[in-house]
Write a protein that binds this DNA or RNA. Structure first.
Length: 236
DNA sequence: CCCTGATTCGC
DNA sequence: GCGAATCAGG
C-alpha cells in the first residue's frame, strides 16, 4: 500500500465527495490514488450515490451476473454464490415523503430585493430565487444546499505532501456558516477557503456571493466573463 | 471517444 | 480493507 487512508485523507475524501467533487478530482487532490480507489473507499465508508450517470435506472436485471467471470488477472473461478437478496422482511417501504415543500417565500427582503423566478438547481422544488442587492442571484432560504464548490484543476500523481495549512480555513474546517470560496489552488500548501461568515442563507460570504451569483445582463450589455475560482486564472 | 460512478473480486 | 478491472449510462 503506497498511501494508507489516514484520518485526514478520509476526511478530505468525505468533504469533497459530499461537496460534489467527482471521484477523479478527489483522487487528483489526494494524490497517489486512483479514481477507483476513491470510489471504492467512498463506498466502503458508506458514502455513495449522488449524481451518477449509471445509477438512475432500476432494472438490475440479472444478466451482468454472468457477464464478468472472464477477462481478469487469474482464473475467474466464479462469482460468489448468488446469494439471493434478502429473503424475509418485505419491508413496507415507508413513504419517504419528504419533499419539504419549500414555502413559496419571496426571498428575504433584507434590502428590498425584487423577486424573480430564476432557474435554480432542484428539479422538483419550485425555484425560489431572486436578485440580491448586489445583483447576484438569491436563493430561497429553504432550498439552498449543495455548495457545488468550483472544481479544482485536474492533476495526476502529485501527492499532497502534508496538509500543513496553519490556521487557514481548510477543507476540513468548512461548515455551514463560513464562506467556502476557495483561495488559491488545491494542492498548494496555502490553499484555503475564505472562511468568513456567510451571507445568511448562502454558502458564501456577501462579497463572494456577488462573485458566485452573477446577474444576467441584458443581451448586448454583457461584460467579459469575470474570473471564477478554479476555472481560470488565479483569483486572489 | 470522453466522462461519470457502481460493482466485482483477487489480493 | 484495498483498488484494478470491468461494467454501464451520459
Amino acid at each position: 500500500m503506497a498511501v494508507s487512508w489516514t484520518d485526514e485523507r478520509i476526511a478530505t475524501l468525505k468533504k469533497m465527495w459530499e461537496g460534489g467533487s467527482t471521484a477523479s478530482q478527489i483522487a487528483d487532490e489526494l494524490g497517489g490514488v486512483s479514481r477507483n480507489a476513491v470510489i471504492g473507499k467512498a463506498h466502503r465508508l458508506g458514502l455513495k450515490s449522488r449524481p451518477s450517470p449509471v445509477k438512475a435506472n432500476d432494472k438490475p436485471a440479472k444478466k451482468k451476473a454472468a457477464a464478468k467471470p472472464a477477462a481478469k488477472k487469474a482464473a475467474p473461478a466464479k462469482k460468489a454464490a448468488p446469494t439471493t437478496k434478502q429473503p424475509p422482511k418485505p419491508d413496507p417501504v415507508p413513504a419517504p415523503a419528504p419533499v419539504p415543500t419549500p414555502a413559496p417565500i419571496t426571498a428575504k427582503p433584507t434590502e428590498g430585493g425584487q423577486s424573480q423566478p430564476i432557474p435554480n438547481r432542484a428539479p422538483d422544488l419550485p425555484k425560489i430565487v431572486s436578485y440580491g442587492p448586489g445583483g447576484f442571484l438569491r436563493q430561497g432560504p429553504g432550498d439552498q444546499q449543495a455548495p457545488i464548490p468550483p472544481a479544482p484543476p485536474r492533476r495526476r500523481v502529485p501527492a499532497k505532501p502534508s496538509p500543513e495549512i496553519a490556521d487557514k480555513t481548510t477543507l476540513l474546517d468548512l461548515n455551514d456558516r463560513i464562506c467556502r470560496w476557495p483561495m488559491g489552488h488545491p494542492g498548494e500548501p496555502d490553499f484555503h477557503f475564505c472562511g468568513t461568515k456567510v451571507n445568511p442563507g448562502f454558502p458564501y460570504c456577501v462579497e463572494h456571493c456577488g462573485r458566485a451569483y452573477q446577474a444576467q445582463l441584458p443581451r448586448g450589455a454583457r461584460r467579459p466573463p469575470p474570473p471564477l475560482p478554479f476555472g481560470g486564472p488565479r483569483v486572489r
